[in-house]
Write a protein that binds this DNA or RNA. Sequence first.
RNA 1: GGCGGCAUGGCCAAGUGGUAAGGCAGAGGAUUGCAAAUCCUUUACCCCCAGUUCGAAUCUGGGUGCCGCCUCCA
Length: 495
Amino acid sequence: MSLRLTNTLTRRTEPFVPLEPGKVSIYCCGVTVYDLCHLGHARSYIVWDVLRRHLQWRGYAVTFVQNFTDIDDKILKRAAEEGSSMEAVSERNIADYFTDMDALNIQRADRMPRATLSLDGIRALIAELEAKGAAYSADGDVYFAVMVKADYGKLSGRDLDQQQEGASGRLADGEEARKHHPFDFALWKGAKPGEPSFPSPWGPGRPGWHIECSAMVRQELGDTIDIHLGGADLIFPHHENEIAQSEAASGHPLARFWLHNGMVNVGGEKMSKSLGNFTTIRALLESGVSPMTLRLFVLQAHYRKPLDFTAEALAAAASGWKGLNAALGLAARAIDPAAATDTASPPAGIPPEVEGELASFRERFGAALDDDLNTSAALAVLFELARPLRSQAHRQQRGDAATADAARELNLRARGALLLELAGVLGLIPESLPTGGSATAGEAGDPDVEAAIAARRQAKAERDFATADRIRDELRARGIELIDRPGGITDWIRS
RNA sequence: GGCGGCAUGGCCAAGUGGUAAGGCAGAGGAUUGCAAAUCCUUUACCCCCAGUUCGAAUCUGGGUGCCGCCUCCA
């Protein structure tokens, strides 16, 4: 069984075969850096991070390129509002992008070109299109002529005659008069007075949105790449236009596979800046949602389907992650970190039937991701793998000595190693628990809390449960939760 | 008007021909002075109608509801 992906271009799920054996080139449409990223961005980049990790896990050498759009009307608007510059707004939001995505354990792209640093390639591409008769200039603007591309609309499955011009209600004033066809789009926009601009053969101005991606793909990865990624809202017009430009220039297919992720919805509506119903990644993390909870929340749904963002669903993901994280923590502590890198071959001494069981977990997990990134099914494997780990830990904590034989220990370690490896393919890594301690006699910790716990233990010993419960309530009011364990041990965590 | 997608238990969500993964919540149990935490067990015939088939959540046709895109968008 090999990887199959749903290709927007063919509207089918088809076997993925890279252009060059063993190598995969990927271009992912990045963000326009005018504001913080929201949950919709998080979903997109988490999902594509899993695609990338899975390809790597399968042994491919992946080259992953993602751009920053740092020239844009919204950035200019934001800069004007702040009284700062386009550069200042871009730099700040790029830094914030890295902070947020790093927190979510999203691997950084191998290369991250920016529009402002790719102007030579952009101008060259526009000139080439112009020379080939696919572009025309008008009053300082340059437009792409969609009619020269007989297959225009092939990605989004559109027939231009059937489209309602301006159905989105966002036609730019004045531009219509300059265009030969309503669906022609700007490759270069002449600068209005006072706007930042860059020189060009067509006069000072800045590149259109679509052309920058075409130029950066070509510059970084060549005429034809294996996979092009983006949100479903980019299919039309952005990706359609990218195809038109790139293919008109090169004469070769731009990308073999086009993958698009579904939107994040809020109350049944798409999360977006313009609707104002967005939640930033930052706000979510600051509210106490852990990065891995967010990752689990996203990966529980299939990447092409809409994902409804609700407090309930997020809370469910948090509970689910708590359990999975506990198992990952147990696994991480149980195995030798030095040996953890090679888990493909189980340690010696594992009974064949256990080895077979683990192999089948690995098989199921891989098959799930191979099946158009079925992360939901892959997660199910993780949860099944995790359960015996937690069970065993529970029994050991309760002092069930009969379970602590060496063979069993070895099996659990092998299981734990596999769990860590597979979770890692989904980018899920153990998160440290809230700070706390174990209040056994003579153990160091927060002296204040330890004293209160000692007092409670004393009260319990004297069967003065009223006092014991009062102490427990007082600590709880301070955000400290007590967990009694057998043997008179009381753990505590800050919640 | 055009193109595309979705409808599975209280909630989220896999499953695309052979009698429904997983998570959350709930219930019961173990444990506890009582709790909490933890562990164990447990809960569905798949929007409606018609059809194909030995057999359909899964295929076909029709219907209903919801969502995305049609030059800001991940």
